[in-house]
Simulated assay, not measured.
Amino acid sequence: MHMNSAPHLLTEDRAEYERILDDALRNAHDRPDLAAVGERLNAEQLRTMALNATTLITTAAATEYEHYVKVREELRSPTTAASIRNSVLAASEGEASEGGAGFAAVVAVLAPVLAGTAALIFLLVGYILKMLSPTPSFAQTLLTAGWFFGAVTAAAILVAAIGLLLTALRNGATQVPAAESAGELPDELSRAKDAWRHALLERGLLPFLRAALADPSADPSSAVPPRHVSRIPKVGYSGPDYSSPSEGSTTGQRPTFTSPDFTSPDFGGPEHRPE
């Protein structure tokens, strides 16, 4: 019975292995060395062969995979998890403070617009009324209100400019270090995963598929790799040897039994009568 699962390939990574295999088969016609897919063996048959030989194929990228798993386990360690949790909490607090700052920024932007609009309306209506004869008594009141809102508009613009400048300086001083400290481990994990994927594709899957296409005796239902892939050992289990003992082996002698001697008594003449 052949072994169809990879002992060193964790269950959570088998889906990634199948995804890389499917991508290689999907883009097989873009590679000249895999252009024969579909002539003798189709993509589904090659996929079955590669899944049956998972152990043999992943052996080619064992070093990269061990490094990837190590980095991932370090990322999942309690110390790293606590650090990430603190980073998330800090980011949440930062988002909350940014939410308050965002509201203030909205008010700072809207205040000049609203005040400027009011000033424009009051001044326009006030000057139009000033042109009438006789001049209405509330025309001067409208002009006063218009100039007041004009002053409010100028003050609001100044306050908004100062607030935006302070916000930009504060974000520039805090966001870059936080991003660097929070993204260090995920970047390392991403690089380790990419290295494993590349090694698995270039040193494992593609050589296996090329050998399968070049071997006319390859059996799609077999887990044994094509015979041209000599660098990958054949892994399997053979049944115990239940052969009979050899003919020349020494056997014990069987006990022999002889029947008892039931001969009749020896009767002679009168001179030999028993006493």
Score class of each variant (00 low, 15 high):
Met1Ser: 11
Leu10Ala: 12
Thr11Gly: 12
Ala15Ser: 07
Glu16Thr: 13
Glu18Trp: 09
Ile20Cys: 15
Asn27Glu: 07
Arg31His: 09
Pro32Glu: 04
Gln45Phe: 07
Leu46Asn: 00
Thr48Ile: 05
Thr48Cys: 12
Thr48Ser: 12
Ala53Arg: 10
Thr55Pro: 13
Ile57Leu: 03
Tyr65Leu: 08
Tyr65Lys: 02
Tyr65Cys: 06
Val69Ala: 14
Val71Tyr: 01
Glu73Cys: 12
Glu73Tyr: 10
Glu73Gln: 15
Leu75Met: 09
Arg76Gln: 15
Ser77Met: 05
Thr79His: 06
Ile84Met: 13
Leu89Trp: 01
Glu95Leu: 14
Ala104Trp: 06
Leu110Ile: 14
Leu110Met: 14
Ala111Cys: 08
Ala111Trp: 05
Pro112Ala: 04
Leu114Asn: 11
Ser133Gly: 04
Pro134Ile: 03
Thr135Ala: 11
Pro136Phe: 11
Phe138Leu: 10
Ala139His: 01
Thr141Gly: 04
Ala145Gly: 11
Ala151Gln: 04
Thr153Leu: 04
Thr153Ser: 09
Ile157Tyr: 07
Ala160Glu: 01
Ala161Asp: 01
Ala161Val: 00
Ile162Met: 01
Gly163Tyr: 07
Leu165Ser: 03
Leu166Gly: 07
Asn171Ile: 10
Ala173Val: 08
Gln175Asn: 13
Gln175His: 00
Val176Met: 08
Ala179Thr: 03
Leu185Thr: 11
Arg197Leu: 03
His198Arg: 15
Arg203Thr: 07
Leu206Ile: 13
Phe208Cys: 10
Leu209Lys: 08
Ser221Leu: 14
Pro225Tyr: 02
Pro226Gly: 10
His228Ser: 13
Val229Lys: 14
Ile232Phe: 12
Lys234Leu: 05
Val235Leu: 05
Tyr237Met: 13
Gly239Cys: 10
Gly239Val: 08
Tyr242Gln: 08
Tyr242Gly: 09
Ser244Gly: 06
Ser249Trp: 00
Thr250Val: 10
Gln253Glu: 05
Thr256Lys: 07
Phe257His: 11
Thr263Ile: 06
Thr263Phe: 00
Pro265Cys: 03
Glu271Lys: 10
Glu271Thr: 03
Pro274Gly: 05
